[in-house]
Write a protein that binds this DNA or RNA. Structure first.
Lengths: 201, 201
DNA sequence: GTCTATACGCAGATAGAC
DNA sequence: GTCTATCTGCGTATAGAC
């Protein structure tokens, strides 16, 4: 039983790696089996079908992706704290896992309906944070603006460079991948400064 | 011969629609044939293979996508002009074609090598604009910052909401698609204001 | 639980009539 | 140039031995 569980986890890890790189449609069960060091039949023994294996991986990825967000936008932090925390935490995670956002987005784009349920369970409720923004605007701490636009800006600035990494690396860093990642390291504070500079009165 | 060309264009349009929604791997030749109102065999008669048909569509999409960018970042506009032009022009285009960025990004992520040549021919050279930014910093018109970060910010803020549209619509607009698009209309000026507010001294 | 061998269906590609 | 019918290979899934 201890052994069983271990195999299952090895499969999930391998499937995660392959699905994230190739997507559901592009991934091959053979490739996942190779990555896990086992054979195709065993994948079906544990997960019955490619679709079920994918669902397991996808829900795993969603959970870990949005957990951080849930805490940061829970409403217990000020706008400045949340913006700095979000930039630092997400850009750090994305430097380690640059393929995840594009993967999630691609799968959601393909089939919004089917995954809506799965997603709604995992997506954080950000209304508390929108209220914090409104409160700080009312108090005159930050300039007047649509709270949703501010939140969208924060998310966009942190995540997009990784989603568009191939293009950005080509267009802005002449294909030099190291230069890209070094800029991302600095970006953790640069982005926060950029946002806070814009919203201060 | 006039008839021939028309069929070819009908196929290209249909292929574009299907490829953009489903991606290369998810698209089916049968679906493209249906969309074009013809049969599979004719697709092969005109384009020999799915791959060649895809390449034709992809290079078409790349060209139209980056043409606007080339002009805006040519160096003939000031930072403020370029930012306002870019936000207005790209958000307008994306309201009409919201699936294009995710499509391009997904295909590039899957196979960076193979498409590198295709891409490098289409990607604009943005160094002139980076120099404009540096010049305006030197002149004290805008605050000191990494020109690449500013350009990345501008691109991120305009494009990301469309790439992440399914998630953003769910998380920020309770699934109300109209609310999303109305916010994007306002975003054309909001984003420009947000950026210019942040960089002014 | 893990393997090898095999069934089966789907989707890309071709043959050949009109 | 456009169609119907068919081939072929690949990839998911299953059967069955160990």
């Amino acid at each position: 039983m201890g052994e069983d569980k271990k195999t299952e986890e090895v499969i999930l890890e391998a499937a995660k790696t392959v699905f994230i790189r190739k997507g559901m449609d592009g991934a091959r069960m053979q490739e996942i089996a190779d990555e896990a060091g086992i054979n195709k039949a065993l994948l079906h023994y544990y997960f019955r079908s490619k679709q079920k294996l994918f669902d397991a991986v996808f829900s795993m990825v969603l959970r870990s992706t949005f957990n951080e967000m849930r805490e940061i936008f829970s409403g217990e932090f000020s706008v400045e704290q949340a913006v700095r925390k979000f930039a630092d935490s997400y850009i750090n995670t994305l430097i380690q896992n640059p393929y995840i956002p594009e993967f999630v987005i691609h799968e959601l784009n393909k089939d919004v309906e089917a995954l809506q349920l799965l997603v709604s369970k995992n997506l954080p409720d950000i209304t508390p944070f929108l209220q914090v923004i409104e409160k700080e605007i009312a108090e005159g701490k930050i300039r007047k603006m649509d709270p949703r636009q501010l939140l969208m800006n924060t998310i966009s600035l942190c995540i997009f460079p990784f989603v568009g990494r191939p293009i950005i690396t080509t267009i802005l860093f002449e294909g030099d991948s190291n230069a890209f990642y070094q800029t991302m390291e600095r970006r953790k504070s640069d982005v926060a400064d950029f946002i806070l500079n814009s919203i201060k009165k």
